[in-house]
Design a protein around this nucleic acid. Sequence first.
RNA 1: GGAGGCGUGGUGUAGUCGGCCUAACACGCAUGCCUGUCACGCAUGAGAUCACGGGUUCGAAUCCCGUCGCCUCCGCCA
Length: 579
Amino acid sequence: MEGRTHYAAAVTEELIGQTVTVAGWVHRRRDHGGLIFIDLRDRTGLVQIVAEPVHAENFAELDRVRAEFVVAITGMVRARPTGMENPELASGRIEIEPLRVTILSEAKTPPFMPAEAENVDEMLRLKYRYIDLRRPSLLGNFMLRDKVLMAVRSFFHAHGFLDVETPSLARSTPEGARDFLVPSRLAPGEFYALPQSPQIFKQLLMVAGFDRYYQIAKVFRDEDLRADRQPEFTQIDVEMSFMSQSEILDMMEAMLRQVFYESLGVEVAPFERMTWQQAMEGYGSDKPDLRAGEPLMDLTSAVRAHIAWPVLQAAPFAGGAVMRHYQPTRKQLDGWVEFAKGQGASGLIWIVKSGEGLRTSAGKWLDEQALQHLAAAARLGTDDTLMIVAGEKFPSLAVLGQMRLEFARQEKRIEDGWRFLWVTEFPLFEWSEEEQRLVSAHHPFTMPHPEDIDLIATDPLRVRSQAYDVVLNGTELASGSLRIYQPELQAKIFAALGLDPEETEEKFGFLIHAFQYGAPPHGGIAFGLDRLVMLMAGARSLREVIAFPKTAKGVDPLMNAPSPVSTSQLDEVGIQIKK
RNA sequence: GGAGGCGUGGUGUAGUCGGCCUAACACGCAUGCCUGUCACGCAUGAGAUCACGGGUUCGAAUCCCGUCGCCUCCGCCA
């Protein structure tokens, strides 16, 4: 072929009268018998080719062309006749009259058309991902992803961060997600683990004095998948030395704001901040969606004062969610009761305030005056509905938080915009029912809150940490913390987690030893790049922003992975398959 | 591990409380016609073991049982 001179979208009015060569795929073909229009598609867009029978040879070639053939066209750029312009296209005011047509590749009729924006079965899309990715909307996601990455890299480079690669063949560590294992041929019976994050490596880089590190790192977690979870995904991994928590938050907030500005042209407002305690009490979630209406309220004392029901009198907590300007039907109210029960509540009390007065599902336990007082305590306006859930504090709040979100979704009350939020002071430990022991809420290297050090031994579940999350519109985007850099404190944490010293020496010894050779105070964070791009692209699933994703069962339908391997391969690594 | 939804020509759907189904519609595909379309139009045509296996029945896309696959959610994901 002749060398391409222009992308499709670059063929504009300025080129009228010139000869250009464009190349790409046949997007659509409109055959009028004596006149054939071809929409030629490349990465930038479409350009219209018009073939007329006067050029018999070219006309015959374009008559033969079908959808998704790959062609190169050398031709004359000319203005479209008046009234025939297409304002939808960058190249819509011109068309190309072909002088030379080269069919570079023929194409079988594709299983689905990139030109049609219909909902194709996702399995089929993944099997023919190379065709799926031709769809302009999907391509757009990857162009956005590229912009985001460019903005990320330029920010970190400009602020003195070093991009350092860390190993993918690492060691399996206790705590956290299930590891993907890689058998070792040189050490039969032993395994590498693919990293769940470069956590320990980046801390070692801080001990090494690299001061500021970042990496666009692939990480791996062998857990069940969701729309926003893939077994392998990409983190923007960051670590810094000699920085306070607030300096780290400011730096990362600046990074995200720059990314939004450079890739979407959006000026994001300064992030809101709240503690984990405030998030849980106000929204029943550690990742509140601030777009979904007002916070929950604590009605414990009001409920005790006004509702005589013994069950509620005995409940340690009662909380309320107000649904503004909402007059549900009886059926809808029953639906909310079911919803609350489905979320684990033992029951739900509703109060509806209309022009005719107050109605409640708890009428048996309070008189009109008490009802008035209770509605006032909840600042209930006319046309508002109040939902009350009572019981253990955090579980009740979680139910109310789910109701708040579900209400906003159902009634389309979720506001537009980018509501960023820092959630800070996460608890250091959680109780694992399954293992019947304390586990780290974030990871075992997280620095406790300085005021709570003494509680580690006495009341560990009340210990706050210096850990923080970035939440965007109700999605957890990033998670980080200041790290422990004193071996003695680290030992205390391991002890609280019930890890015996021998075990910690074997599994984390290298990190403890490193800290004995001069460790700087340090901290960091890791962002889910795929989630960030998904939200920015307005996509419903991570699969829309990952070129070759896996299905919910972890299968890649394109390569057919995972797959069995030969016995000789297994022999080499000393593995026998259990029947 | 649990719950729910879905599976019908190449694609998207209708049909799913048993018989009017010899499976419908749109897109796509093929052939023919068409010189200004841009989701071109018109005509004709080809194309389906109704996911798979078993069962009930005179009769099953439709009912029952099982299996598989996809999607969503819970558990899980430091």
